Simulated assay, not measured.
Amino acid sequence: MSFPVIDFHCDVLSKMREDHGLSFKDGAQLDVTYDRMLEGEVMLQCFAMYLPESWGIPRYEFILDQIDAFKTRVMRTGEGVRWLKWKEDAEELGQTIGTAASGRSRHLPWGLLSVEGADGFEGNLYYVRMCYELGVRFLGITWNYANWAADGVLEQRNGGFTEKGKKLIELANETGLLLDVSHLSETGFWELAERTARPFIASHSNAKSVCAHPRNLNDDQIRAIIAMNGRIGLTFVPWFVRDGGEGAVKPEELLRHIEHICALGGDDHLMLGSDFDGIDSWIEGLEHPGKYPAFAELLSRHFPEASVWKWFSGNALSFLTSHLPERDNANAG
């Protein structure tokens, strides 16, 4: 059994920036490849642009390098990966998902761009606006630590947004750039909930009540995302699934996170955010996107197929069609 998949987080592009010899089609060092996207029926993959600390002081050119890798090395792979930027693109994707489900057509995958941590914008809001104009649609405000905009979840002082970070929220609301609170401090989370005019997502976080990792969401945060009609991406990082993450973590262990989020009202708000290529150990049986059909079969033994369908693609798709900007409005004037 399989379902069309939308996955809201992977770190392929930073790997490709570090190694220009990597093949997106079937590179052995990549979790997410073109061939595995087709194998796992991944209709849309969100490619995060992450700037590792090993690269030194974060710079805007590091983001531009990854946009270039997406355009020149991902989009041109195989029969082509399409770039999803607009509400109209998401609506077309929805039609494609419908025909793929009926078995009437073979799909070609789409890609969506996000930035993981505002550090690389160097505190320059013009760079943020330019990145949006270039086609980036989601911004994870921090990685784990503090940057010019806000504190990350591992920053001990647990601060919120800086004055320039508050202007970033205003800019995001103005342009339609969507915000991602995975990695954001808890203080920052609640400050953003008060200040934003748009719902936000946690692209790759699980339930803290099930696994007490600081990167997971507590029940109040989960309820807040549900109340604003945001989305939560179930992630496959072993140490976000089970405390300690030691030994073989099995796909069945994700069921507790799903059950908990749904018990809080999240059936229509749960999606997938694997973090493939951002990890160096994997859930046994969920090592890459080609494993999604087996995961779908597992979930279908425990949950209604209508819910599994929503978690695999429906909830993410409805968020995109509701909140991405319209192409005509962007081009007006």
Rank of each mutant, 00 (worst) to 15 (best):
S2M: 12
V5Q: 05
D7E: 04
D11N: 09
L13S: 07
S14Q: 12
S14G: 00
K15A: 02
M16G: 01
G21F: 06
K25V: 14
D26Q: 09
L30V: 03
V32L: 01
D35N: 14
M37K: 05
M37Y: 08
L38G: 03
L38E: 02
E39A: 15
G40M: 09
L51S: 13
L51H: 11
P52F: 11
G56E: 10
K71N: 13
V74Y: 05
M75P: 02
R76L: 15
G80M: 06
W86G: 01
T96Y: 00
A100K: 11
G103H: 09
L108M: 11
V115F: 03
G117M: 06
A118D: 02
L125Y: 07
C131N: 10
Y132T: 01
E133I: 03
L134V: 08
R137Q: 07
F138P: 02
G140R: 01
Y145W: 13
L154M: 14
N158Y: 06
N158G: 07
F161N: 00
K166L: 15
E170R: 14
L171N: 06
G176E: 04
L178H: 07
H183T: 13
F189S: 06
E191K: 07
T196N: 12
K208Y: 13
R223C: 09
G230M: 08
P238M: 11
W239T: 13
F240D: 00
K250H: 13
L255E: 08
L255M: 12
D268K: 14
M271R: 06
G273Q: 01
E284Q: 14
L286H: 03
K291R: 15
Y292N: 04
Y292V: 06
P293V: 09
A294Y: 01
F295Q: 00
E297R: 07
L298K: 00
E305A: 14
A306D: 12
F312P: 05
F312L: 15
F312H: 11
T321W: 02
R327M: 10
A332R: 15
A332E: 13
